[in-house]
Amino acid sequence: MNILTKSDSEILNIAEPIWDDIVKGANGKNWDLFSKHMPETDQTDEAKQDVENQWEQVPLLTSLTDKKEFVGILRRKDSVLVLWRQWSSKEDGEFLGTLNLQSINSEVKSIGMFIS
C-alpha cells in the first residue's frame, strides 16, 4: 500500500488506530504497544531505553487523553504527517500531536511521533 496515493479520509482511517495504540502504549508505559506500528529496524533496545527515559522525564507523554481533534494532513516526498489537537489529563492546554507515516514494504509504518 502506498500511503501517498491515499485520500485524506483513507489516511485518517489508517492513522487513527495507530495513534490510539501509541497513546495507549505511552500512557501505560507499554513499549510493545507503543512500538507496534514502527518498522522493525526502529524497535531497538536503544530506542526502547530512550522512550522509557522520556516517559519518566516528561509527564505529558504518559498523560494523553483519548480526546483528540483531527487538524490536517501534510504530504511530503515519501511520507505523510497526520496532525491532531491533543489533550492531557495532567497538563493544561492543547498540544499538537504529529504522526509521521511511511509505506515500507507495502505496509504503513509509524516513522515518528511527536507531541508539542
Results as ranks from 00 to 15, higher is better:
Thr65Tyr: 09
Asp92Val: 14
Val82Lys: 03
Val80Ser: 05
Met1Gln: 10
Ser9Phe: 04
Gln54Met: 13
Ser35His: 06
Ala26Cys: 07
Pro39Tyr: 06
Ile3Glu: 04
Phe114Asn: 10
Ile104Cys: 11
Glu40Pro: 00
Ala26Gly: 14
Met1Arg: 12
Leu61Asn: 07
Lys24Gln: 14
Gly72Cys: 06
Ile14Tyr: 08
Trp87Tyr: 15
Trp55Thr: 09
Ile14Val: 14
Glu52Ala: 04
Glu52Tyr: 02
Asn105Phe: 08
Ile22Cys: 01
Ser79Lys: 13
Gln49His: 12
Lys6Cys: 03
Leu33Asp: 02
Asn27Gln: 11
Glu94Phe: 06
Gly28Cys: 14
Leu83Asn: 11
Leu81Tyr: 12
Leu81Thr: 01
Trp84Gly: 00
Pro39Trp: 09
Ile115Leu: 15
Arg85Ala: 04
Lys67Phe: 07
Ser79Gly: 00
Thr5Arg: 13
Asp92Met: 14
Gly112Lys: 02
Ser116Ala: 15
Phe95Cys: 04
Ser7Ile: 04
Asn2Tyr: 07
Ser63Val: 03
Phe70Tyr: 06
Asn30Phe: 11
Ile18Gln: 14
Asn2Glu: 15
Leu101Thr: 05
Asn2Gln: 07
Glu69Asn: 06
Lys48Ile: 08
Gly25Met: 04
Gln54Trp: 11
Pro17Ile: 10
Arg85Gly: 00
Thr44Asn: 03
Glu40Phe: 01
Thr44Leu: 05
Lys109Tyr: 01
Ser9Val: 07
Asp8Met: 08
Glu91Tyr: 05
Ile11Ser: 07
Phe70Ile: 02
Leu83Pro: 02
Leu61Ser: 04
Asn105Thr: 05
Thr5Val: 13
Gln54Val: 06
Ile18His: 04
Phe95Lys: 07
Ile22Asp: 04
Leu33Thr: 13
Asn53Tyr: 08
Lys90Pro: 00
Trp55Gln: 11
Phe34Thr: 11
Asp32Trp: 00
Val51Cys: 09
Ser7Leu: 07
Thr44Asp: 10
Thr5Phe: 10
Pro59Met: 02
Pro39Ile: 08
Thr5Ile: 15
Lys109Thr: 13
Asn30Asp: 15
Phe95His: 15
Lys109Ala: 03
Asp8His: 04
Trp84Met: 06
Ile18Ser: 02
Lys29Ser: 13
Gly25Pro: 10
Gln102Glu: 09
Gly28Thr: 12
Lys77Leu: 11
Arg75Trp: 07
Lys68Ile: 09
Thr65Cys: 11
Met38Glu: 04
Lys68Val: 10
Ser106Phe: 08
Gln102Tyr: 00
Leu12Pro: 02
Ile18Arg: 13
Lys48His: 05
Phe34Arg: 08
Gln49Asn: 07
Glu107Asp: 15
Asn27Met: 08
Phe95Ala: 06
Lys77Thr: 14
Ala47Thr: 12
Asn2Trp: 09
Asp42Leu: 15
Leu101Tyr: 10
Ser89Met: 10
Gln86Cys: 02
His37Glu: 11
Thr44Pro: 05
Phe34Tyr: 15
Ser110Trp: 00
Ser106Val: 01
Phe95Gln: 10
Asn2Val: 11
Glu52Pro: 00
Asp78Asn: 15
Ala47Pro: 01
Ser7Asn: 12
Ser103Asn: 03
Trp19Leu: 12
Asn27Leu: 03
Met1Ile: 14
Leu60Lys: 11
Ser9Lys: 12
Pro17Tyr: 10
Val108Asp: 02
Ala15Cys: 09
Glu56Ser: 15
Leu4Ile: 12
Lys109Pro: 03
Leu99Lys: 01
His37Leu: 01
Asp50Ser: 15
